[in-house]
């Protein structure tokens, strides 16, 4: 947790400084989904950018592979479709998927920032014209939230928190917005949390969600990096796997809390990449 916090602080300082390691791969930014967002019951590892007519290299680097949409019996069908992967000097890899073609850079070994890679097409598991953009940190062996290394987006609105529920170990559900009393014990918290950026109504994943019980942090999900261990991917803690975070079809799993007899103030705090924050507070009597 300590390591994660220091990483978050480092990134926050980095963002606040106005510096960015990479540039946006499209001129007109229309974000359809963010890192960490529900993607077919899984945690998305990248950003989906709509109407990506011209896709550009987001930094100087070397083209390490072009993946071709599998059109015959050779190879395997990558869900990235036609894709280009660029290795940057700072140990980052940038991934550009769902391209209409990989011919444009077929003979390029090095690419400069802004070099045209092609257009987004319909070659991968994505919407027509949507770019799949991912950033991999090779040094730390993680998948990075691209917002940590891209210029900040104009965003004046905080995330929206709805439908917060607590599920007991026996499966009983209490809607925290309506309940006044709950029994003591362990609960799994779920909520419907979505963010937006200026100029877009698309519901996006937040950057961090924390749960406080009587002022103490009981759970926290930072949407900063995806880590892998034993063939499974998780957000920060092995408790936040692709199978758990979006196991509920409508809500996000926030974590497990213990409620003891007496009064409990439960705060759910959601923050976006621009630093906008939203807090909802529930006061409950624990029996």
């Amino acid at each position: 947790m300590k390591k994660s916090r220091s990483l978050a602080i480092a990134f926050a300082v980095f963002i606040a400084s106005g510096l960015s390691a990479l540039e946006w791969p499209v001129a007109e930014i229309k974000v359809r989904s963010f890192f960490g967002q529900r993607d077919e019951a899984r945690i998305s590892g990248g950003i989906a950018l709509a109407d990506a007519d011209v896709v550009r290299a987001s930094g100087n680097g070397k083209r390490v592979i072009s993946i071709a949409q599998n059109g015959n019996m050779n190879g395997f069908p990558s869900t990235l479709g036609n894709a280009v992967i660029i290795a940057h000097d700072d140990g980052l890899l940038s991934v550009y998927g769902n391209l209409d073609s990989i011919d444009r850079v077929a003979t390029h070994e090095t690419l400069e920032t802004g070099a045209i890679l092609g257009s987004a097409g319909m070659s991968g598991w994505a919407r027509q014209g949507e770019l799949i953009f991912q950033v991999i940190d090779k040094e730390r062996k993680t998948m990075l939230n691209p917002m940590l290394v891209l210029p900040a987006l104009p965003d004046s609105r905080g995330p929206v928190i709805k439908n917060v529920i607590a599920m007991s170990s026996s499966g009983q559900i209490a809607a925290l917005g309506a309940a006044k009393f709950v029994r003591q014990g362990q609960y799994r918290l779920y909520a419907d949390i979505a963010d937006t950026v200026d100029g877009s109504q698309a519901p996006l994943a937040p950057f961090r969600v924390s749960v406080l019980v009587n002022g103490s942090e009981a759970a926290s999900i930072p949407f900063e990096v995806l880590r892998a261990e034993g063939g499974k991917v998780y957000l920060d803690s092995p408790a936040y796997t692709t199978a758990t975070v979006y196991s509920d079809p409508e809500r996000m799993f926030l974590g497990e809390i213990t409620l003891n007899r007496g009064r409990a103030d439960i705060s759910v705090i959601a923050r976006d990449t621009a630093g906008n924050e939203r807090t909802v507070l529930f006061s409950l009597q624990i029996e």
């Binding site: 077919e40 590892g45 069908p77 869900t79 991912q134 998948m143």
Partner: peptide, 18 residues
């Protein structure tokens, strides 16, 4: 995702590519 059959083996490549 995308199904891939190889001999009598069946695979599913999941969205996101990873």
């Amino acid at each position: 995702g995308y199904v891939h059959v190889d001999g009598d083996r069946t695979y599913l490549f999941i969205p996101g590519g990873c």
